[in-house]
Design a protein around this nucleic acid. Structure first.
Length: 548
RNA sequence: GCGCCCGUAGCUCAGUGGAUUAGAGCACUGGUCUUCGGAACCAGGUGUCGCAAGUUCGAAUCUUGCCGGGCGUACCA
């Protein structure tokens, strides 16, 4: 592709004295393998008719031996058809890596303990993990971390119900079976939330219990708190693994309780240069920086979320010294993060341009209330169990790789940033544009390769139509990966791999591989296809089993 | 009020730095099938690309204004 590009650049320079980069695009298959609009761009500059310019360029290009045919279409597009031989030579798993000199830190999950993980957490975790994969694919040295709110109001709400439940006897807690804990915790939190809104006395008590998450007043509080916090992290690790996420770094679990005092100190040390006192609170005038004025330390002296985030940035820097630090959050936190990042750059100048906030939409439910006892949240375990049911209907057995793949692909195929309308029927679907479709297509390919004793050969010099279309699609791989890593946009890979697999399935319908005259050539085709698909899926964090 | 994001087929969504005839999946109807895995393939059609103006050889894409929706707007996170 670069040869063609360079060739056109040379031609335009020679003919018109015009220097500059030429764009090559991938047109519809009927318009060739590559297309250039260079004639249209140059025509205006030169004061000539675009078709005339195109004709002059085309005349030169026809001499290039890798080009089979060049045509001028429409107002002056130059459509280039390569020979099959030169097209197949472009098939490759390689792509350019642009972050090889970078160390990066990225949060790949951050559900809070003392609550159950729901679908929004899964969305966030899958996006974070996949963006981490993209950074890794692009050559960066990646540290995956997590961040959890183990202090504050939500802890108070859960502790209220928990302390009522055990009624002074911790054994009541330890008697709860392991597989009951998640929904138990969920219920405790829901009850606490409910009374907090409805009962003034309970509210006061919960506020006090929330404060105790920083400094427990009783041994019993501490005991219950520690047990439940451990349970939560066991659950989180288990569920995150079930989603197909790679584990976080050994030192990568950060807690708000650790970040809090650091953050408060940073704020206090930077009054009045960065932060100012207002009504007893310490605020940052974020409205000057595209955000909003925000309290970092409350009037009672407690650190607030924004201050803890400063502490977290400092912690990450001390552990990893990253050039870039990625935080994946819902869109509703965008303005907040703009303020926090601005405050961080002023109070910790070393961290300038380090932290990047990537925002995603919220997960909305299409069918309203679907699951759980305490409201309209969909718990991850419940959802994955439903997906497992659907997968089992097809294959007769459970397959964790397919279950995770179905969910990941469902979330990843959409452009990051807009809201996701979550439909349970679509999520458990294994047909059409879905993870299982891709995994199935991969297994089909592997199955062919496993069935023959012949060696994979090299490409035949002439391809039939469906072979040509599949090869043509495969040559786009490197461009797609580079695009996706550059923009940290996994959905480009999803779209591509789906189109690639469609081409494979079409090829599969029309061509017998084993026993055909061109078997070794077709084996090469299938082999390249499965390798590309597998590598692409792996970047998405989706496994590609040989049998599904 | 101000700021940010969004509006493409019945539904869910793609559509690269402007480009040839705006595409997929789902759903619906029909077909393929003694061949390497039917989680498949093929065929059938619908779009004032929210509205309007502007820039351009050319706009779903860029600019402006409006309409509609979401989010944010300091002591929750």
């Amino acid at each position: 592709m670069n040869d063609i590009k360079t060739a056109i650049e040379n031609v335009t320079k020679e003919l018109f004295g015009q220097e500059g980069s030429v764009e090559l695009t991938r047109p519809d298959a009927q318009f060739g393998d590559f297309s250039s609009n260079v004639a249209l761009q140059l025509a205006k500059k030169l004061g000539k008719n675009p078709r005339e310019v195109a004709e002059a360029v085309v005349e030169k290009l026809q001499d290039i031996e890798t080009i089979n045919k060049v045509e001028i279409a429409g107002p002056g597009f130059i459509n280039i058809y390569l020979t099959d031989q030169s097209l197949t030579s472009l098939v490759s798993l390689d792509y350019a890596k642009n972050r090889t000199d970078q160390t990066v830190v990225i949060e790949t999950n951050n559900p809070n303990p003392f609550k159950a993980m729901h679908i929004g957490h899964a969305f966030n975790a899958i996006l974070g993990d996949t963006i981490a994969n993209l950074l890794d694919a692009d050559g960066a040295h990646v540290y995956r971390v997590s961040y959890h709110g183990d202090v504050g109001l939500h802890v108070g709400k859960s502790m209220y119900s928990l302390l009522k439940y055990i009624d002074g006897d911790v054994d009541k807690l330890t008697n709860i079976a392991e597989n009951e804990r998640n929904s138990f915790m969920s219920k405790m939190y829901a009850e606490g939330s409910k009374v907090y809104k409805e009962d003034e006395n309970a509210k006061a008590e919960i506020d006090d219990l929330a404060q105790q998450s920083f400094e427990p007043k009783t041994a019993l509080y501490k005991q219950v708190y520690d047990i439940c916090k451990n349970w939560s992290f066991e659950q989180i690790d288990q569920i995150v693994a079930r989603l197909g996420n790679k584990p976080i770094d050994e030192q990568g679990r950060f807690l708000e309780s650790d970040a809090d005092h650091r953050g408060v100190k940073i704020v206090r040390d930077n009054v009045p240069e960065v932060f100012e006192e207002s009504d007893g609170a310490l605020i940052f005038p974020g409205s000057k920086y595209g955000a909003f004025d925000n309290a970092f330390v409350a009037s009672n002296g407690r650190g607030l979320y924004a201050a803890r985030d400063l502490g977290l940035m400092q912690l990450k820097n001390e552990y990893y010294h990253p050039q870039k630090s990625y935080i994946i959050t819902a869109e509703e936190q965008r303005a907040l993060l703009i303020g926090v990042i601005a405050a961080a750059e002023l109070s910790m100048p070393d961290l300038k341009d380090v932290t990047v906030n990537i925002t995603h939409g919220t997960v909305k439910l299409s069918t309203g209330k679907m699951s759980s006892r305490d409201g309209d949240v969909v718990e991850i375990d419940w959802l994955l169990d439903r997906i497992a049911d659907a997968v089992k209907e097809h294959s007769g057995e459970n397959n964790p790789a397919i279950e995770a793949g179905a969910l990941r692909y469902q979330f990843l195929k959409v452009k990051i940033g807009t809201d996701v309308v979550f439909d349970i029927n679509e999520a458990v679907s294994v047909v059409g544009n879905s993870g299982p479709y891709l995994q199935y297509a991969h297994a089909r390919g592997c199955s062919i390769l496993a069935k023959t004793t012949n060696e994979v050969g090299s490409y035949a010099s002439n391809l039939n139509e469906s072979e040509h279309l599949l090869v043509r699609k495969m040559t786009e791989y490197s461009e797609v990966i580079e695009h996706a890593t550059r923009e940290l946009a996994p959905h480009y890979i999803c779209t591509y791999l789906y189109e690639l697999s469609q081409e494979f399935n079409r090829f599969y319908e029309k061509n017998q591989v084993i026993g055909s005259d061109t078997e070794t050539s077709r084996l090469k085709l299938v082999s390249d296809y499965t390798n590309i698909l597998k590598q692409g899926l792996n970047i998405l964090g989706i496994e590609a089993p040989e049998h599904v």
